[in-house]
Design a protein around this nucleic acid. Structure first.
Length: 429
RNA sequence: GGUCCCAUCGUCUAGUGGCCUAGGAUAGCGGGCUCUCAUCCCGUCGACGGGGGUUCAAAUCCCCCUGGGACCA
């Protein structure tokens, strides 16, 4: 039975590098029907906060990384003391100036058998004795991790390779405590664009920030998984795909730069595949936040129409925020024209004719709309091209968007003709 | 400074001695489709850090150098 753990310190938000480590552990557990343990390493009481714990849990929940067991390190101080006392009793640790020191063998070497990197050998005389318990009674990180991993029966320690150099110490401790040594997998670091290990000064590194910026969790998971892991030439993976395909053998050994241009593309790919009702739920608060559409207006729009809107607009959006902005089209709110509308005088009668025709026939679907509009224009001796851009600008406030008849159908003949008239009459004055 | 890890297009990566005049993706650029934008499709730019070996054959194995990173001090 495979047991893995993710053990963050609650001293700030969960950054994307940590999220990637959590993800790899989670994937390994789920792929092997193992157990995924979340352990909050809050022994540093000075810097640990409940707010950070909440943030971490929310980040994990957002990404869909559910855990099977939850522990807080501070609940385990008695176990830590017991283990340390055991080492003292057996002469494997000693006291000096109030602190407890672990005795490291002066000869031989300790070999880290890493599943990814292979065997890494450390000469013991380089390691030197180290403190496991400070004179104030608090325990050193390296000691606590080992005791916890041992007690929790962790079989695979999957963590960042910044811990590789600590691992021989850990192995020595496992052996001294007479507990089985877990297997180790040291993942390459995630780097900032300056190729140093990702940290807060690199800007947007908080996991939840990506949620707030309008990324889908499955896109984030996909992106994070591909940072260091690959499966042939495949790029787009659902969460289920990843669980099914994930394996340690396909993890890369070199660090990866976190650059979110590809995340944008992946997000679009996942938006295209996402369930429409779900997308609606996700963007509704974003649309309301923009301040022009009320809850009532959203309700009146009707689910079918909203879904059609999402369906038409999502191909041109990279994020949920983009989609929310685009969705304002469906509502009778004041237009916010991106460009000034320059209407030529000969276009005025055409626009009015179209408006009139729409009022008379009130077509509903795009096909009907197209027939009506093309017919009117033909009668006037004009082509669609002659009014396409102006009418798009008049009706949507934008130069670009879905097919003209599709947007018009979406907005509704009534509002379309009204807006055409406003523009045409504005010129006539 | 000591110890350790890593090294393919700008970025993410495929590649485990011959299928590599190095493949995919993304970003950039160009084109097609079209009322526009996007999607989509096609094309294009673009990399094995350097030097030695081993081998009939090296991106792939070995050594050195260089570079980057991490941990400890």
């Amino acid at each position: 039975m495979i047991r893995v753990r993710f053990a963050p310190s609650p001293t700030g938000y969960l950054h994307v590098g940590g999220a990637r480590t959590a993800l790899f552990n989670w994937l390994y557990a789920r792929h092997n029907d193992g157990t995924f343990i979340l352990r909050i390493e809050d022994t540093d009481r000075e810097r640990s906060t409940d707010a950070s714990i909440d943030e971490i849990l929310n980040s994990m929940r957002w990404l869909g990384l559910d855990w099977d067991e939850y522990h807080r390190q501070t609940d385990r101080t008695e176990d830590h003391l017991k283990a340390a006392q055991d080492l003292m009793d057996r002469g494997l640790a000693y006291e000096s100036e109030g602190a407890w020191w672990f005795r490291v063998p002066t000869e031989g070497s300790t070999i880290v058998q890493d599943e990814l990197l292979g065997d890494v050998e450390y000469a013991n005389d380089h390691l030197k004795d180290f403190v496991i318990r400070r004179s104030d009674g608090s325990f050193i990180y390296h000691f606590v991790v080992v005791v916890d991993d041992a007690d929790m029966g962790v079989t695979h320690v999957i963590r960042g390779d910044d811990h590789l150099n600590n691992t021989p110490k850990h192995i020595l401790l496992f052996e001294a405590l007479e507990r089985p040594v877990p297997k180790f997998v040291h993942l390459p670091m995630i780097l900032g664009e300056d190729r140093t290990r990702l940290s807060k000064r690199h800007g947007d590194t908080a996991t939840l920030e990506y949620r707030d910026r309008g990324f889908l969790p499955e896109a984030m998971v996909n992106f994070l998984a591909r940072l260091g892991w690959s499966h042939g030439d495949d790029e787009v993976f659902s969460r289920d795909d990843l669980v099914q395909l994930f394996s340690l053998e396909e993890i890369n050994k070199s660090g990866a730069v976190f650059e979110d241009t590809k995340l944008h593309w992946l997000n679009q790919q996942h938006m295209k595949r996402a369930d429409l009702d779900r997308l609606l739920d996700l963007i509704k608060p974003l649309v309301l936040d923009l301040g022009r559409v009320s809850d009532e207006m959203w309700g009146q729009a009707g689910n079918d129409r909203l879904k059609r809107g999402v369906h038409l607009l999502r191909d041109r959006c990279k994020t949920l925020r983009d989609l929310a902005v685009a969705m304002e089209l469906l509502f009778p709110v004041p237009l916010n024209p991106v460009d000034d509308i320059l209407v030529q005088s000969e276009q005025v009668p055409l626009l009015l004719a179209v408006a009139e025709a729409l009022e008379e026939t009130t077509p509903v679907d795009p096909g009907e709309l197209e027939n009506v509009i093309r017919e009117v224009l033909a009668c006037q001796g004009a082509k669609l091209k002659d009014v396409a851009l102006v009418s798009r600008l008049a009706v949507t406030g934008r130069r670009a968007g879905p097919g003209l008849f599709d947007v018009f159908a979406l907005i509704g003949a009534e509002l379309v003709s009204k807006r055409l008239r406003v523009t045409a009459e504005g010129v006539a004055e």
